[in-house]
Structures are given as structure tokens and as C-alpha cells.
Amino acid sequence: MTVEQRYRRLWKPLVFVAALTPALLLLAGALGVGGRRLGPDPVEDLLLTCGKTTLNLLWITLAVTPLAHLLHRPQLLRLRRTLGLFVFFYALLHFGIYLVLDRSLDVAMITGDIVKRPYITIGFTALVLLVPLAATSTNRMMRRLGRRWQRLHRLVYAIAVLAAWHYYWQVKRDVTEPLLYAGLLALLLGWRVWHRRRALRSMAARVTSTYGSARVPGRT
């Protein structure tokens, strides 16, 4: 199998199955399939599970780039868009459950929440920011946007920060888990800063050794 075939026939289906499993388990719980049931507060259970799965998948998506570098497997990079779409899927599910099951589609209450409750404002902003990323995740959009595509998709860093903050702010007292997510995010983003600076430095060093000058063309 070529790298391309392995990606299409093995990795992509695997990612699909793994990423859909939490949703299928929730569905089984909601329908009582296989003796599974949701928690005593089923709406809360659905909300929390979808919310956390969104975070988990987003963090995994952000871990792909560092992993691809550390493992010298650039082919991993293409998993990012697939994973990112699942992030959007769970974020939508999370929001839909809030709208329909938790707020019974009460428009006044929902708009009030989004305007007045900072943690909901933040979560809603993150969801809105995900829309252009999901919409431009196809190969065609990638080609069409060219360099601008990457610039646009750096929005994911802001989205992740908002998502971590959204989780932190809605916890009543025990902030252990939100802090854990925030710490992991700091690692994931910190790696990027470190990596970029190192790459720039080595580029500068190459330029210096070639031209014998400290002037770096292009980016300064």
C-alpha cells in the first residue's frame, strides 16, 4: 500500500470509528441499548460528555503537529482536518443539547445567556469561530485559499483558549480538571512557540554561514 492508500483505507476509518464512539455510546445510553443508561441528570450527562469530547478531540488535533515532528511522520498532518471536523461536530452537538434539552428552545433565555453569562458568551464565540474553519476544510478550499488558508486556520489556537476558559468558568468549585486542560494546552501551544523560534534560528544560522552576513532576507 502506498502512503496515500494506507491513509485512506486504514487511518481515516480508524479515526472515524474512534471519534464517533463517544457519540454512539451516548446514543446507546439515551435509548437504553445494551443496558447502558445516562446519569441521573441525563441532560447534564449529555452536555458534559459532548463538551469534554470536544475538548479532548481539539487537544488531540493540536497534538498532531508536535507528534508528526517528534515521530518524523509528516503524513500524520493530514489527520488534523478530519479530527477538526469532529471537534466541530461535538461542539454543535453540545450546543444543540443546550438549546433543545436544557433551555427548551426558549429564545429569550438563550439570548440572555449568550449576552449576560460570560462563560456562555465565550463558548458561543468559540463555536462561531469554528464555523469558517469547518467550512474551509475541503481540499478545494485549501487550494483556493492558498497561503491564506493557514493564516485562517491559526484561529484554532484562539478557539482552544476560549474552550479551556469556557470550561474553567462554569465549574462550581473544583477546578482541577479545567486546570489540567489549560496546562496541557499551554504545553501544546508552548511547543509551537519553541519550535518556531528554533526553526527561525537555524534558518538565520544557515543564511549567515552561506552569505557571511547577519541580514536575514524575508521575515525579520
Partner: peptide
């Protein structure tokens, strides 16, 4: 009177069905 971070106007009854909880 809302909690500063969330509305107290509605509640979810534990044990109610998914669509009638709130």
C-alpha cells in the same frame, strides 16, 4: 435572581425523561 454565572429561572428534574427534564 440569577446566580452570577447562570440563570436560576429553570431547573432539571432528576429522573424525568430527556425531553421533559427542564
Amino acid at each position: 435572581v440569577d446566580h452570577p454565572r447562570w440563570s436560576q429561572a429553570s431547573e432539571r428534574r432528576i429522573g424525568a425523561s430527556l425531553f421533559a427534564a427542564t
